[in-house]
Simulated scan of single mutants.
Amino acid sequence: MKIIKKEKLPPWISKSFTDGVYRTVKTKENIILYRTYGGNAKIQGAFATTLPARNRINAKINSALVPDWKNSRQYEAIIEVPKGTTLNIGRVEKQYTKSGSLLQGDGDQILLPQNWPKDWIKDTIKVPSK
């Protein structure tokens, strides 16, 4: 990936990166990303990561998926992003649940281009609960 001029993101998106820190890059080759989804979280959502979820608990903690967002984490899309695509990358900011529990975050966070094409999805798998 090649670092390019940083895109200015809306505050609610930039705050989802640890300490608001992210880089804007252009892919030099096709890359594989993973998106855990289900429930209210759609397959073609905005965020993905570089590592597959080993289970739903892992996905919840590493991606700081607050239960209020109603992402069941039941499925994972395997996404092939083509060479030459602009992405914003960083680490997932920690989140707190309503009860005050900490979801650590700190996994890789990739902001996909808005309205990215469904044909980037190469496969979907069911994510184990444990």
Rank of each mutant, 00 (worst) to 15 (best):
M1P: 02
I4V: 13
K5Y: 04
K5G: 11
K6H: 06
K6S: 06
E7T: 09
E7M: 07
E7K: 12
K8W: 04
K8A: 14
K8C: 10
L9M: 10
P10Y: 05
P10G: 08
W12D: 10
W12V: 07
W12A: 10
T18A: 08
D19Y: 14
D19W: 08
V21R: 15
Y22E: 05
R23Q: 12
T24Q: 12
T24D: 10
T24Y: 05
V25A: 04
V25G: 00
V25T: 13
T27F: 02
E29G: 13
E29L: 14
N30F: 15
I32T: 15
L33G: 05
Y34F: 15
R35M: 06
Y37T: 04
Y37E: 04
G38N: 07
G39D: 10
G39F: 12
G39M: 13
G39E: 14
N40A: 15
N40M: 15
N40L: 13
A41M: 11
A41W: 13
I43S: 14
I43G: 09
I43V: 13
G45W: 03
A48S: 14
T49A: 13
T50L: 13
L51T: 12
L51Q: 12
P52G: 07
P52T: 08
A53K: 01
N55A: 08
R56L: 02
I57P: 02
N58Y: 10
A59D: 03
I61F: 03
S63P: 00
S63M: 14
A64L: 03
A64F: 01
V66G: 01
P67C: 05
W69R: 13
W69G: 09
K70P: 01
K70T: 05
Y75T: 05
Y75Q: 10
E76C: 04
I78E: 11
I79C: 02
I79K: 00
I79D: 00
I79F: 03
I79M: 05
E80D: 03
E80L: 02
V81P: 00
P82L: 07
G84H: 02
T86F: 01
L87M: 09
N88L: 01
I89H: 01
I89G: 00
R91V: 04
V92H: 00
K94Y: 11
K94S: 12
K94L: 13
Q95S: 13
T97V: 07
K98G: 03
K98S: 08
K98F: 09
K98N: 12
S99R: 12
S99H: 11
L102A: 09
L102G: 08
L103N: 15
L103F: 15
L103E: 13
Q104L: 08
G105W: 01
G105E: 02
G105M: 00
G107N: 04
D108S: 15
Q109P: 04
Q109H: 12
L112E: 00
Q114D: 15
Q114H: 14
N115C: 11
K118D: 09
K118N: 15
K118I: 14
K122L: 06
D123E: 14
D123H: 06
T124C: 05
K126L: 08
V127Y: 01
P128R: 09
S129A: 07
K130W: 07
K130T: 07
